[in-house]
Amino acid sequence: MSEYDEVARRFEEFSSKTLFHERPWLEYLEATGKGKPEVLALRDEAGDTPAYHIWLTRRIGPVKVMGSPLPGWTTNFMGPLMGADTDLDSVLVSLKRYMWRNGYLYAELKNQALDENKMLAHGFQPVRDVTAVLQIAPTEEETWSKLKSTARNRVRKAQKSLVAEATTDMDMIDEYYELIVERYREQGMSFPFSVERLKTLARCLLPHGRLLLVKVIHEGELAAAGLFPHDERTIYYFGGASKRSLTKLCPNELMHWTAISHAVEQGIGSYDLCGTSQFKRKFGATNEEVITWCYSPVPGLLLARTALIRLHWARLRLLHRLKSWMGGKK
């Protein structure tokens, strides 16, 4: 990734740069079997380099795929690194030409800087989703005022009996894993990741200051835990879980507020809660549309994508039923 290192030195030039373009995140994806990171300089007609595209290459059956990113990677964004004045038309023409010459039959791009009309004009198909995003104010007081009264009241309640702390202790990953596996079990599903995948995330991000671990304690007992990757612009809710028997003490609200307070201290401007719900919006977040752009010269591959995602969730439920049945046979 020598060319990548050259690009990394220019990150601040690109308005579309995210945590997920950075080396620690790419190393996490590669270490967990998502593919090989690649970098492509996309030049305009004058031979200048208006953009760089970052992705991981993998094969799904006979199909060579350009993932930037792909579903299941717990990766919110990627796509081209572009400046505010980059000609997106030139970028897309160069990208499709590269795919054709190098045997890629399918690609996904996900970046908020991609113009919808131009993407559609170049044959990319949208898959629309929504996430809740809090615009964090410069001070904790201003940010606190953005929370709905229900969230503020529940944080105050939590602070009476719970203690929240940020930690770099890898042992917290095991504790978090126990909580999240139990919550998935309660929903009739098996958690899709191994504990080793979560430890790999921590090993890749913690040394670079790109991961906040939050734990909430009640009388020496873990009440809630969460993982919050971030860069200097945005903090993300990777995942969190709490002990059901302690839910009435509001550990989840305190966990999120602790992450938000950390973001204020670090000058981070937004909090992406990675999906939306009434619970998430009460932290002052508003819904924003997120579009995954899919492209293939082969008809039908987008339909195959939808079928594979449905199969993934059906598989989690089946695995849970099988584990429950096997447990009952012992």
Rank of each mutant, 00 (worst) to 15 (best):
W293R: 02
R203N: 13
Y98Q: 01
R281D: 10
A223T: 12
A304E: 11
F124K: 03
D89I: 03
R23E: 14
L213Q: 10
V298K: 00
L249R: 08
L114K: 06
A41I: 01
E22F: 03
A8N: 06
E142N: 02
E165S: 04
G275D: 15
P50E: 05
L212Y: 09
A84Y: 06
H208V: 05
L212I: 14
G35R: 01
H230W: 11
G67H: 11
A158F: 14
V91D: 03
V133H: 06
M82I: 14
G240F: 12
V195T: 05
K36Y: 04
L302K: 09
L120G: 13
L29Q: 07
R233F: 11
T139V: 07
F238K: 08
F14H: 00
L162S: 06
H21P: 11
Y52M: 00
G35V: 02
P69C: 13
T18C: 04
R317Q: 14
E142G: 12
Y271K: 09
M66Q: 10
A137Y: 09
E13K: 01
A314P: 05
L105Y: 00
L249K: 05
R203P: 02
D85E: 11
L120R: 14
M78H: 01
F20G: 03
K160D: 11
R315T: 14
T131D: 11
A241N: 10
L318S: 13
D85T: 13
Y271I: 05
S94Y: 07
R183V: 10
I217A: 02
L134Q: 03
G67T: 01
Y104K: 11
L40V: 08
G35L: 01
A314K: 15
V91S: 01
L318H: 13
A137L: 12
F279S: 09
N252P: 13
G188D: 08
H21I: 01
E45A: 06
A107M: 01
T276I: 12
S68R: 10
G226W: 07
I291W: 03
E140A: 14
G327Q: 04
S261K: 15
D272P: 03
L198R: 00
L162Y: 07
M255N: 15
L26N: 02
D87G: 03
F191N: 00
H21F: 01
P80S: 08
A314G: 15
L301H: 08
P62E: 04
R203F: 10
F283T: 10
I309W: 15
Q159G: 12
L318G: 06
E288K: 08
R233C: 00
N153R: 14
I291M: 06
N102T: 11
G72R: 05
G239D: 02
C274S: 14
G47F: 12
E142T: 07
T247A: 09
N287L: 02
I260Y: 04
F11D: 00
G240Y: 05
S15D: 04
G67D: 13
F124E: 10
I291C: 07
E3D: 15
H208K: 11
Q187V: 04
L40R: 00
C274N: 15
S90A: 14
M170E: 06
F11H: 01
G47A: 06
V133Q: 11
E221V: 14
